[in-house]
């Protein structure tokens, strides 16, 4: 037994998706987290809520709306078509866009918590040493918030690997394009091929356990708890 070629393709596709999404999210999520950590604007509440929405929404809701909005008659679909990119559902890029939205809170929140934990003092000190805002950000904020970034990257990656509902709604199950591990497992189960399903499912359980155990060990050593214990 073991993995079939299709299983291995699904594993590589999933790793590629999770890797791409994690990199994008660190780039997009960092300014959002920084703004949320510093602002006193009334917009903080609504923006935080939008970022956190995927935590509470069923993935099917997100997938359903993305299918419509990114479709040929949707707002985003019409923009992507006008740009000559076609429509996003059933493509790898479409999954990347969906996963970025879906995993956003898992990246933004740990970074934001770490940035809030820095406090005013180091920033004031940096300012008295005539550091500009960019300099302060890269020389003070990012090094001090590093554990938050590590947690964010690990959680963003792991959460994208575990994504299912959204992919099912907009993926179309195309080999090497949108057929990720979770969809492949679903197919095995639906086709009553339980032996094949066990291989992939078992691998997912071990992967998830190792990632989370490593994360908690890392946090424990640093005596920081950026996440509620339950996550």
């Amino acid at each position: 037994m073991g993995f079939t070629d299709a299983d291995i393709n699904a594993i590589f596709l999933t790793l590629k998706l999770a890797g791409t999404v994690t990199c994008l999210l660190l780039v997009i999520g960092t300014p959002i987290a920084w703004w949320l950590a510093r602002t006193h604007s009334w917009l903080k509440g609504p923006i935080s809520a939008v970022v956190a929405l995927p935590l509470v929404l069923p993935p099917t809701v997100l997938g359903f709306y993305l299918l419509i909005v990114m479709g040929p008659n949707g707002v985003v679909g019409q923009i992507t078509q006008a740009m000559g990119l076609g429509t996003l559902p059933f493509t790898f890029s479409g999954l990347v866009v969906a996963s970025v939205l879906y995993s956003m809170p898992f990246v933004v929140q740990p970074i934001q918590n770490a940035m809030e934990a820095i406090g005013e003092r180091p920033l004031e000190v940096a300012a008295t040493l005539r550091a500009g805002p960019w300099d302060t950000f890269f020389s003070v904020v990012i090094p001090l918030a590093k554990p938050g970034f590590v947690t964010a990257a690990i959680l963003g990656f792991a959460h994208t690997v575990g994504e299912f509902g959204v992919v099912l709604m907009i993926g179309g199950n195309i080999p090497n394009e949108t057929r990720v591990i979770s969809v492949q497992i679903y197919d095995h189960v639906e086709a009553l091929d339980y032996a094949q399903a066990h291989w992939l499912s078992g691998a997912m359980v071990i992967f998830s356990f190792v990632v989370l155990a490593g994360l908690y060990l890392f946090q424990h050593r640093r005596r920081i708890y950026l996440l509620p214990k339950g996550v």
Binding site: F90, L168, M169, G172, N173, I174, Y186, D187, E190
Partner: peptide, 9 residues
Amino acid sequence: WVQGENISQ
């Protein structure tokens, strides 16, 4: 081809 998990999808 794009494949739905069932005929509804």
